[in-house]
Design a protein around this nucleic acid. Structure first.
Length: 884
RNA sequence: GGGCGCGUAGCUCAGCGGUAGAGCACUGCCUUCACACGGCAGGGGUCACAGGUUCAAACCCUGUCGCGCCCA
């Protein structure tokens, strides 16, 4: 047995312990007959590093995995990383730009660029997985996956081809959100709408052919936040019911600058209440206008290239061509102004779409892209949640899920990037499309046509959506799949319900014969700084979990995040909390040192030792209650309750009372049998603490587990206490609660009267029931040790400290130094409190309706409490009377 | 505009129908033979506001005010 060091220093053992667990395969012990418990990790970006959000997400998952592993289940935490298409490609491109050569991917070519990304993945790809190990995450590393490994590539291709053949995935020309910086299409979800200060430009469009409005005006005023798009206008729309414009429907306006004639059409999109009631229609660059254009069979006029620069479209003057969209905007307004056509420019807060990765304004742009029929796939995904096959925790997120799913749009899955799964589609010379799992298969479909493969790759989330089954070997029919699909719980942030959770639901149900990918989705909140601000690098308020781990230990960080996780609410992380839980770890460490120094060692059995002494019987019952509380917390996904329950037990019960109450029992000269029993029970209880705390503080508990004695195996695979099977003793419990109450009363009274802490006093007791008399005798040593009072029968009266506890009155002589006024004040205060409660209870008992309508337990309790408070008030009154 | 959530001790949060809780912070005492990253004791809350339901409301219902998030 090794001695427990005087100082608790987590850095000394955390990494050593983790390495041993991993080397021994402890994260996934062979349990072929056990019920599986499966969690799939939200795969972190392969080139990322661990941020505090990961720390939270993975701490919670590890708590669940370790708990169920301790409960004997075949716990498997499926792990791996995501290739993170756009994010990774951006990182590598930035590096290329900043490198000495200052090159670009276009200059390198696709093959060379991809080789560079793979190199980067190989060199930095294990950063995050190393950091997850520092956190203590007990993942199944032996089967680590990557969304671009060979097996995953097969799965992605299979899914793409099958969805295509089922008509659920198709190529279409429609407006997409185009990111002119990244030069790729992005999905609706990757667009974030921001409110920015902009302008609303009112433009006069001259009516052609001499027609006029009802007002006599020779022009129509339209207003726009994006004047440059007028170069691509194909119509002006007015509402059919708008009297102002009746006369011009079907007529034309002469579009300024371009000189084109465009029709005035009637369409409900034009709202008479808004602005002039007339709107310009640019089908190629506005989602609403695109729909208007379709209704009126207009041919959209695209005015931008991929960089959002003006192209030589119909009627656009040559001096505009090649101009950036924002420069073009200024020029359009200037040119219109020269023509006298700018009616008004007003400042206005406008909603602008931005690319979430690039941060530039997204352009609606007409291109050919691949789409998934999400609305169709969403049907079973919604039904699965409605039926309860998959449940969200907290339940409120189900509403969010339904709300989005019910309004789901076609999912644009093609990206004009290089890093990712290249789309398995080939084109013939005339654009004929062949979708197949391999070029050979495509060629077989195409016959003799020369084929060219689609250049684009798939949205990263397309592959992430397959994570719950592709990681388990799909499309092969594997044993892993049979055993671990569906997963038990998915733990993730609410912010990726749409991106990821919903899509896993859709793909999982579709490709796994209607089986959901997971039974429960636990959504946690965001980690914010201590003041509640969102953490961001630009604000400089980020907290690096590894810095906290270095400073306080991984266990303290894990405990903090677990304790602060109360069902989905955002976490405001204050380093003081981490410090506090490090102190808790230290407390337990020192308690274990104390045990070791007192000859208390590892217990040999999960069954509690036979115990006769009340304090020992009591602590065994307390362990049972704690285990039951922890079981309930896990069942309800109350991580905060889990942390709180074990914290209170360890510190406020085990350390503060049990270890203190048993000190006299272990003292020299005591009953050897009782001492032996106490050592055995203490060792057992400490073992149970280590087991019960292990899911949250795995390193510290494993270290102590071995320091306390020879073990057959590691704590990580030890046995969780069976709460229902542990003996509880109500009598012993009442006994010890009485004892704790008495000691607390005595201490409190001593403090209030400034009795020197070390002073030992005698006491007399009056009104003690036989039970109390026997308890006073039985616990005399503990009372002497902790309350510093010993029996010294003496007549009541005179200058004594008096206190009332459990219907008995105790009197402690103070050798004449008692401050009578202070003692009187103390007793008065206690009596007033007792009387106040007594009266409140009487009021309730006498109030009409209470006795007739309240629950019997409530009435019973009120009566008992009333009686106790009355008796207490009387005894305190008697004590006051004796003071004189 | 639609939806969701939150306003409880100085701070961060539990509690969600039967006498207001925790951690931190604060005050006092204690270098007592596990622990000063500690021990013991203590102060501090008209549970945002206004109505309603109930024998009983921090808790349920309605409304108001304030704050946050998501979607359009």
């Amino acid at each position: 047995m090794s001695l427990i060091d005087k100082t608790f220093s987590p850095a000394d053992f955390e990494q050593r312990i983790y390495a041993r667990w991993e080397a021994e395969g402890a994260f996934r012990p062979s349990r072929p007959d056990a019920q599986p418990f499966t969690i799939i990790i939200p795969p972190p970006n392969v080139t990322g590093s661990l941020h505090i959000g990961h720390a939270l997400d993975n701490s919670l998952q590890d708590v669940l995995i370790r708990y169920h592993r301790l409960r004997g289940r075949d716990a498997r935490w499926v792990v791996g990383t995501d290739h993170a298409g756009i994010a990774t490609q951006m990182v590598v491109e930035r590096q290329l730009a900043e490198s000495t050569q200052g090159t670009t991917r276009q200059a390198m070519g696709r093959a060379a660029f991809l080789e560079t990304v793979w190199d980067w993945k190989r060199t930095s790809g294990d950063t995050i997985t190393r950091q997850l190990r520092r956190l203590g995450a007990s993942c199944d590393w032996a089967h680590e996956r990557f969304t671009m490994d060979d097996g995953f590539n097969i799965a992605v291709t299979r899914v793409f081809v099958q969805l295509y053949n089922e008509g659920l995935l198709y190529r279409d020309k429609r407006l997409v959100n185009w990111d002119p910086k990244l030069k790729t299409a992005i999905s609706d979800l990757e667009v974030e709408t921001r409110e920015v200060a902009g302008t609303f430009t009112h433009i006069r469009y001259p009516l052609a052919d001499g027609v006029t409005l009802a007002s006599g005006a020779d022009h129509i005023i339209v207003a726009t936040t994006r004047p440059e798009t007028m170069l691509g206008d194909t119509a002006v729309a007015v509402n059919a019911g708008d009297a102002r414009y009746q006369s011009v429907i079907g007529k034309y306006v002469r579009l300024p600058i371009t000189g084109r004639l465009i029709p005035i059409v009637a369409d409900d999109h034009a709202d008479p209440e808004l602005g002039s009631g007339a709107v310009k229609i640019t089908p190629a660059h506005d989602f609403n206008d695109f729909e208007v254009g379709k209704r009126h069979a207009m041919v959209p006029i695209n005015i931008f290239d991929a960089d959002a620069r003006i192209i030589a479209a119909d009627g656009i003057p040559a001096d505009y061509v090649g101009m950036d969209r924002f420069d073009a905007r200024k020029k359009v307004v200037a040119d219109l102004d020269v023509l006298g056509l700018v009616a008004l420019i007003e400042a206005k807060t406008i909603q602008m779409p931005y690319g979430d990765r690039s941060g530039v304004v997204v352009e609606p742009w007409l291109t050919d892209q691949w789409y998934v029929n999400a609305a169709e796939l969403a049907k079973p995904a919604m039904e699965a949640v409605r039926s309860g096959a998959t449940q969200f925790v907290p339940k409120t997120w189900e509403k969010t899920y339904f709300n989005w799913m019910e309004n789901i749009q076609p999912w644009c899955v093609s990206r004009q990037l290089w890093w990712g799964h290249q789309i398995p589609a080939w084109y013939g010379p005339d654009g004929q499309c062949f979708v197949a799992e391999s070029e050979a298969d495509a060629q077989a479909l195409a016959g003799n046509l020369a084929l060219v493969r689609d250049e684009d790759v798939l949205d990263t989330w397309f592959s992430s959506a397959l994570w719950p089954f592709a990681t388990l070997g799909w499309p092969d029919d594997t044993a892993d799949l049979a055993r671990h699909y569906p997963g038990d719980v998915l733990v993730t942030g609410f912010d990726i319900i749409f991106f990821w959770v919903a899509r896993m639901m859709m793909q999982g149900l579709h490709f796994m014969d209607g089986e959901v990918p997971f039974k429960t989705v636990y959504c946690h909140g965001l980690v914010r700084d201590a003041k509640g601000a969102k953490m961001s690098k630009s604000k400089g308020n980020t907290v690096d979990p590894l810095v906290l781990i270095d400073k306080y230990g991984a266990d303290a960080l894990r405990f903090t995040l677990t304790a602060m996780e109360s069902q989905g609410r955002d976490i405001k992380l204050d380093e003081k909390r981490v410090e506090g839980y490090r102190n808790f770890a230290t407390k337990l460490w020192n308690a274990a040192r104390f045990c070791e120094a007192n000859g208390i060692a590892a217990s040999t059995s999960p069954v509690p030792p036979a115990a006769g002494h009340a304090v020992n019987r009591w602590i065994i019952g307390e362990v049972a209650a704690t285990a039951a509380g922890l079981d309930a917390a896990i069942a309800a996904f109350r991580f905060d309750a889990y942390a709180d329950t074990i914290y209170q037990f360890v510190w406020n019960r085990f350390c503060d009372w049990y270890l203190e109450l048993t000190k006299p029992l272990l003292a020299e000269g005591g009953d050897a049998a009782v001492a032996a029993e106490t050592r055995a029970v203490t060792g057992w209880a400490l073992d149970q603490i280590l087991v019960m705390l292990h899911p949250v503080m795995p390193f510290l508990t494993e270290e102590l587990w071995h320091k306390l004695g020879q073990r057959e195996g590691d704590l990580i695979v030890a046995a969780w206490p069976d709460a229902a099977a542990l003996p509880t003793d109500a009598t012993a419990s009442a006994d010890i609660e009485w004892l704790i109450g008495l000691i607390s009363e005595v201490r409190s009274a001593r403090m209030e009267l400034n009795v020197p802490p070390g002073a030992k006093l005698g006491y007399s007791v009056e009104g003690a029931s036989p039970v109390v008399v026997s308890r006073l005798a039985g616990h005399a040593a503990a009372i002497a040790w902790l309350a510093r009072i010993t029996p010294a029968p003496a007549p009541f009266g005179g200058t004594r400290l008096q206190l009332v506890h459990a219907e008995a009155t105790y009197a402690l002589p103070l050798e004449g130094v008692i401050d009578l006024a202070a003692e009187r004040a103390r007793l008065e205060k206690a009596r007033a409190a007792a009387e106040k409660e007594r009266d409140a209870l009487a009021g309730r008992l006498n109030s009409p309706g209470f006795v007739e309508k309240a629950k019997p337990e409530a009435i019973e309790k009120a009566r008992a409490d009333h009686e106790a408070r009355s008796a207490e008030a009387e005894r305190l009154g008697a004590a006051l009377a004796r003071l004189g």
